[in-house]
């Protein structure tokens, strides 16, 4: 999430590609667009990973379109019900939707950035409670694991967690487990 040099999460989030349209000819860089051409012509569209896109965009060599994980369809779906959107599908397995969003937000201009920020914040808040609830539910189940049929919605929500939420899930589950262990243990022998 943060742009720390050593943050593995930041590196992974930077690996997402965004669609750029070049405004100028760039000689001898055709391999970046994945084609066999020697140069990148102006108006060529090419997906470029974010870590490379910074310099390309800030040097005004290209424009970019807001990537589809933050496009209007996803926004509408999130507005309707944040918990039913599978964030992990949008950015690939183990992907970091929030981290990606944060990076896109940093590139964008003021107004659009505020829009993305709002989408991200609302989505996060809307999903947080469910993440924690499920984590605590699973912590309460004990080592035997999920006995009993879990509902489909809960299951599909869990599958749709993005990397950031997964981390939170693990934290909450671990914490709840620890407290539970303590509450239930009667360690007279220890004393």
């Amino acid at each position: 999430m943060d742009n720390d040099y050593f943050s593995i999460d930041a590196i992974l989030a930077e690996n997402q590609k965004i669609q750029c349209t070049f405004k100028v000819d760039i000689p001898d860089m055709g391999h970046l667009a994945g084609g066999s051409d020697r140069e990148i012509k102006s108006l060529t569209k090419a997906p470029i990973p974010i870590w490379l896109a910074y310099i390309v965009l800030f040097s005004d060599w290209a424009d970019f379109t807001i990537p589809s994980p933050f496009g209007i369809r996803v926004r509408n779906a999130l507005k309707a019900e944040p918990r039913s959107v599978k964030l992990s599908n949008l950015v690939g397995a183990g992907g970091l939707w929030y981290g990606f969003g944060k990076m896109v937000m940093d590139i964008l201009s003021e107004e659009q950035a505020n829009g993305i920020s709002e989408v991200l914040t609302k989505a996060f808040k809307g999903r947080l409670l469910e993440v924690i609830d499920q984590a605590q539910h699973f912590a309460a189940l004990g080592p035997a694991g999920g006995g009993g049929p879990s509902t489909d919605t809960a299951q599909s929500f869990r599958e749709g967690l993005d990397g950031t939420e997964r981390e939170l899930f693990a934290l909450a589950q671990e914490s709840a487990k620890r407290i539970k262990r303590w509450h239930e243990g009667n360690d007279k022998a220890r004393r």
């Binding site: 999430m1 929030y98 944060k102 937000m105 950035a113 996060f124 808040k125 939170l168 909450a172 914490s175």
Partner: peptide, 17 residues
Amino acid sequence: IRPFFIQSMGILTQLFR
């Protein structure tokens, strides 16, 4: 609640503009 409250607030700080 400390671990995940802190983490979520950290994330919100990042997302908030």
